[in-house]
């Protein structure tokens, strides 16, 4: 039980190393510190968002499609707070609370009206992005502020924003299978009727999961506005697919109840290496979507095949 998903992990690691080795053989200058910087930079924001998406998926909530709007809302709050000259800790707190409030609002609709999260979050993303366009057109963290410096800082040779992502993935991955709350979330995702029969409140679990997932997106919003230049409400739309692909590749089942969050490091790392590797192969950056899409299809097809074989 504790070794759950290590087959997936080894496969991911092997594919990732294969990609690195192939690119390194073709272009030895790929194996440089610059590449490590580029990959870890891309990993950071997607990784933190993937934790939130993974929490929703593992507890049987399928997908949170409103992550782009939640991320931008949190980033906007972070920008406004740092423009007001507030300390960095307050800026982070404000963004995280914004994300949590967003997730809570999703949960109110999902639990209150008993509607499917995929559609609810699709609708709140529509509404949220449109509302954000009324709030602002273009925003940017003030130059020289603490958050701006944080986005450009390095720590032990890696971007400073990479370390919080690593810490969060490790902590969440450690806590989920080992705490009562984490196991409840998995139980609800695996079989909600059985979970309810054992006295787990489905409503409380949904509220907790969506609020927590929103909090992770809120923190990703801090990383996003710290590193991106001026952004508009649509700037985060492209992240969504990478996040979902990362969650699926990590073997966190979209139908719930199964998954290991530590594997997010491998899946997100692998996905973040693809764009850089393709550039070294001399392929245009447009081709990266082709590879990411085909990898996603193969991964879900393999996942479906395994599930079908496992349950005759």
């Amino acid at each position: 039980m504790r070794l759950q998903g290590w087959g997936t992990g080894l496969t991911l690691l092997a594919v990732w190393l294969l990609l690195i080795a192939a690119t390194g053989l073709y272009r030895p200058d790929f194996l440089s510190h610059q590449t490590v910087l580029a990959v870890s930079f891309t990993m950071s924001i997607v990784g933190v968002m993937a934790i939130g998406q993974g929490l929703v998926a593992i507890s049987g909530g399928f997908l949170d499609l409103s992550q782009p709007a939640a991320l931008i809302a949190s980033s906007l709050v972070a920008v406004r707070l740092s423009e007001a000259g507030l300390p960095f800790a307050v800026v982070i707190l404000g963004a995280v609370l914004t994300g949590m409030a967003w997730g809570f609002a999703n949960a109110v609709i999902i639990v209150g009206a008993k509607l499917n999260p995929v559609i609810v979050t699709l609708a709140t993303n529509f509404i949220g992005l449109a509302a954000l366009y009324f709030a602002f057109q273009l925003a940017e963290v003030p130059l020289g502020s603490a958050i701006h410096q944080f986005g450009r800082a390095k720590l032990f040779g890696l971007p400073a924003i990479w370390w919080p992502m690593l810490a969060l993935v490790l902590v969440v991955g450690f806590l989920i299978p080992r705490t009562r709350y984490g196991r409840r979330a998995i139980a609800v995702g695996g079989n909600r009727m059985a979970a309810r029969a054992r006295g787990i409140s489905l409503k409380a679990t949904r509220f907790a999961i969506f609020t927590a997932a929103g909090g992770f997106v809120g923190f990703a919003g801090v990383l996003f506005c710290a590193t991106s230049g001026p952004f508009n409400p649509s700037s985060a739309n492209a992240l969504q697919l990478n996040v979902i692909a990362g969650v699926i590749l990590a073997g966190i089942s979209l139908s719930g109840g199964r998954g290991n969050f530590w594997l997010l490091l491998l899946s997100v790392g692998f996905l973040s290496t693809i764009p850089t590797a393709l550039v070294f192969f001399g392929l245009s950056s447009d081709t990266q979507s082709i590879f990411q899409g085909l990898i996603l299809i193969s991964a879900v097809a393999f996942d479906g095949y395994r599930a079908r074989r496992g349950t005759p």
Binding site: L241, I248, G293, I297, A299
Partner: peptide, 23 residues
């Protein structure tokens, strides 16, 4: 054929086709 989750598989196709279109 393989029993993949339809939302996830066609999301992959969405991304792949967008890349092919751009190329």
């Amino acid at each position: 054929g393989f029993g993949a989750e339809a939302i996830a598989a066609t999301l992959g196709m969405l991304v792949a086709l967008r890349g092919i279109t751009w190329v």
